[in-house]
Amino acid sequence: MPNFKLVAPYCGVRKYDKRFFVNYLETEENIRREYIFNTDEDASNFSHALENLTAFMKNVPIRKKEAYHQEFLDLLLREVDHKLNVRANPVEPAAAASAIEA
């Protein structure tokens, strides 16, 4: 998959221009959150925050990681001009990972 990076066992990220696709692979719905930014600076800041978040998540209990990850991103982006689309993908993780390219 071009530009796809697995940032945690439960989460992968793909970047395209000013869009970030965050795919949660282990949820029942295989949630994909698409963040669209208006500026390169906001997109770059988001990318750095994802890297920092991944390091932080090592200390979070496994059963809470996905929820914490989504909540942190929501808090981080509260003041940033962006658009968020949330989509549920097919149930199978392999199909969900393939849907990132869709």
Results as ranks from 00 to 15, higher is better:
residue 1 M to G: 15
residue 1 M to R: 11
residue 2 P to S: 13
residue 2 P to M: 11
residue 2 P to N: 13
residue 2 P to R: 14
residue 2 P to L: 14
residue 3 N to I: 04
residue 3 N to K: 14
residue 4 F to Q: 14
residue 4 F to G: 05
residue 4 F to Y: 12
residue 4 F to T: 13
residue 5 K to L: 12
residue 8 A to P: 00
residue 8 A to Y: 01
residue 8 A to C: 02
residue 8 A to D: 10
residue 8 A to T: 06
residue 9 P to S: 05
residue 9 P to V: 02
residue 10 Y to C: 00
residue 10 Y to K: 02
residue 11 C to V: 09
residue 15 K to Q: 15
residue 15 K to T: 10
residue 16 Y to I: 14
residue 17 D to K: 12
residue 18 K to L: 15
residue 20 F to Y: 15
residue 20 F to M: 05
residue 21 F to Q: 07
residue 22 V to G: 03
residue 24 Y to R: 03
residue 25 L to M: 11
residue 25 L to C: 04
residue 26 E to I: 01
residue 27 T to Q: 06
residue 28 E to Y: 06
residue 34 E to S: 12
residue 34 E to T: 15
residue 35 Y to D: 09
residue 36 I to D: 10
residue 36 I to E: 13
residue 36 I to H: 11
residue 38 N to K: 11
residue 38 N to H: 10
residue 44 S to I: 10
residue 45 N to M: 08
residue 46 F to R: 06
residue 48 H to E: 15
residue 48 H to I: 14
residue 48 H to S: 15
residue 49 A to V: 06
residue 51 E to S: 11
residue 52 N to C: 13
residue 52 N to A: 15
residue 52 N to V: 08
residue 57 M to H: 05
residue 58 K to S: 09
residue 58 K to G: 03
residue 58 K to R: 12
residue 58 K to P: 00
residue 59 N to Q: 09
residue 61 P to M: 02
residue 64 K to C: 07
residue 65 K to R: 15
residue 65 K to S: 01
residue 68 Y to S: 06
residue 68 Y to W: 06
residue 69 H to S: 07
residue 69 H to I: 01
residue 69 H to F: 15
residue 70 Q to W: 05
residue 72 F to V: 08
residue 72 F to K: 00
residue 73 L to E: 07
residue 73 L to H: 06
residue 75 L to H: 06
residue 75 L to Y: 01
residue 76 L to P: 00
residue 76 L to V: 03
residue 78 R to L: 08
residue 78 R to Y: 07
residue 78 R to C: 03
residue 78 R to W: 01
residue 79 E to G: 00
residue 79 E to L: 00
residue 79 E to V: 00
residue 79 E to Q: 03
residue 82 H to L: 07
residue 82 H to M: 06
residue 82 H to W: 05
residue 83 K to T: 10
residue 84 L to P: 04
residue 84 L to T: 11
residue 89 N to D: 11
residue 89 N to C: 12
residue 91 V to Y: 03
residue 91 V to E: 04
residue 92 E to Y: 03
residue 92 E to S: 08
residue 93 P to T: 00
residue 95 A to F: 06
residue 95 A to W: 03
residue 95 A to G: 03
residue 97 A to I: 07
residue 97 A to H: 02
residue 98 S to Q: 09
residue 99 A to E: 07
residue 99 A to V: 01
residue 100 I to L: 09
residue 102 A to N: 13
